[in-house]
Simulated assay, not measured.
Amino acid sequence: MASVTLANLTKEYGDLTAVDGLDLDIDDGELLCLLGPSGCGKSTTLRMLGGLETPTSGEVHIGDERVTDQPPYDRNTSMVFQSWALFPQKTVLENVAFGLKMDGVDEEERVERAREVLEIVEMGEFADADPGDLSGGQKQRVALARSLAIEPDVLLLDEPLSNLDKRLREQMQLELRNIHDGVETTFVHVTHDQNEAFTLADSIAIMNDGEIEQVGEPREIYDDPVSLFVEEFLGDTNLVDATVEETVEEGIVATTEFDEQIQVPTPNDGVAAGDPLTISFRPEEFDVSRVATDGGQLTESAAHGDVTTALEGTITDVLYRGSSVRFYIEIGGTSVFFEQSVGDETDLEVGDPVVVSWDPEDLLVFSEGERLGRGGT
């Protein structure tokens, strides 16, 4: 295994810049996920790391060696693609041993090594099978074994689970995590699926328009996003437009789409009265209860001094999502949502008046796309 360094890496196709001055360090033995939407440059970055694309500028280092201009066969890397690309006329064992054969490894050694990696991916009993008789998940494990057999310093995975159904994909995510833990290989895994990245990764690099937005451990990135793009991409949230009314010692007082003023305890450097903001109300931070029958007014517990931390609204839709139920609430003409597990008891129905409350410390505030108090990467 080996560390990886990408320095000022750029790839241009005519007038299109697919990757733009990207810097990234990957630790020896780490499983890093390149995460981002389609067209953000993540697969192009992976292909430059593997030597399948030549950078327009910048450098690629694997361990202590500069490999920027080396062809793929001179780099100790291997790639697993979306398609399995197994040889139909060869057995599973022969498919796994093929790379070793091309490297000139003698037959006895390559067969032994192929059997070892088939055991690692729990496919040992299928060594003599025809690839056409395997399921999608089994084929993907064989493709993974073929790449591991040559003992690469860095294993590159380009959305290898995207062709699997949801249940099998989730199963393979756990298996891939376990395989990484059992081999001495650095993994770089490309995906557009944030759930997959959170399941697999030691660390995540989020890409947008050919650049890295943020790098960090999964929990760190979710709890502490640097930008509105990261916050919106990593999961469902309620994004509410607001305008700064004033800055105060405790943070910002803002008028929201709810037609109400709220105060947010956030650093206020760089913003002034009249500036537009976006406030993220994550659904898991909402506490929702039916309005009391004594007139429906908010109680004193719904406010902290002069700081509004609760508003009244009305349930407009209830959406069953299998293991959870999503409730949509209209507050001052703006729709927000929260979710509950199916097992949680609730008597909320469409048309019910409710109180939506939150802890102001849980709100995230963004100005011009950057998180207040947290900007940069």
Rank of each mutant, 00 (worst) to 15 (best):
residue 4 V to L: 05
residue 5 T to E: 15
residue 6 L to D: 00
residue 9 L to W: 08
residue 16 L to Q: 14
residue 19 V to R: 09
residue 19 V to P: 03
residue 19 V to H: 06
residue 21 G to I: 06
residue 25 D to Q: 12
residue 33 C to Y: 05
residue 40 C to Y: 10
residue 41 G to M: 11
residue 46 L to Q: 03
residue 49 L to Y: 02
residue 59 E to P: 10
residue 61 H to L: 13
residue 61 H to F: 09
residue 62 I to V: 08
residue 69 D to S: 11
residue 73 Y to H: 07
residue 90 K to D: 05
residue 91 T to A: 13
residue 93 L to G: 13
residue 94 E to K: 02
residue 101 K to C: 00
residue 101 K to E: 10
residue 103 D to F: 13
residue 108 E to Q: 14
residue 110 R to N: 11
residue 128 D to V: 05
residue 130 D to E: 15
residue 130 D to T: 06
residue 131 P to V: 06
residue 132 G to K: 14
residue 143 A to Q: 01
residue 146 R to E: 04
residue 146 R to L: 03
residue 152 P to K: 04
residue 161 L to P: 04
residue 163 N to K: 11
residue 163 N to F: 00
residue 168 L to T: 10
residue 169 R to M: 08
residue 171 Q to K: 13
residue 174 L to D: 05
residue 175 E to Y: 07
residue 192 H to G: 10
residue 194 Q to S: 07
residue 196 E to I: 02
residue 201 A to L: 03
residue 207 M to T: 05
residue 212 I to H: 06
residue 214 Q to W: 15
residue 220 E to S: 04
residue 229 F to D: 13
residue 230 V to A: 00
residue 231 E to K: 15
residue 237 T to P: 02
residue 247 T to I: 00
residue 250 E to F: 09
residue 251 G to W: 08
residue 251 G to T: 05
residue 257 E to R: 15
residue 267 P to H: 00
residue 272 A to E: 14
residue 276 P to T: 02
residue 276 P to D: 09
residue 277 L to N: 12
residue 278 T to A: 11
residue 281 F to M: 12
residue 282 R to W: 01
residue 289 S to P: 04
residue 303 A to T: 08
residue 317 D to Q: 15
residue 328 Y to Q: 13
residue 334 T to W: 12
residue 344 D to G: 04
residue 353 P to S: 07
residue 361 E to Y: 11
residue 362 D to W: 07
residue 362 D to P: 08
residue 365 V to R: 14
residue 368 E to M: 06
residue 368 E to P: 12
residue 369 G to P: 14
residue 369 G to M: 10
residue 375 G to E: 15
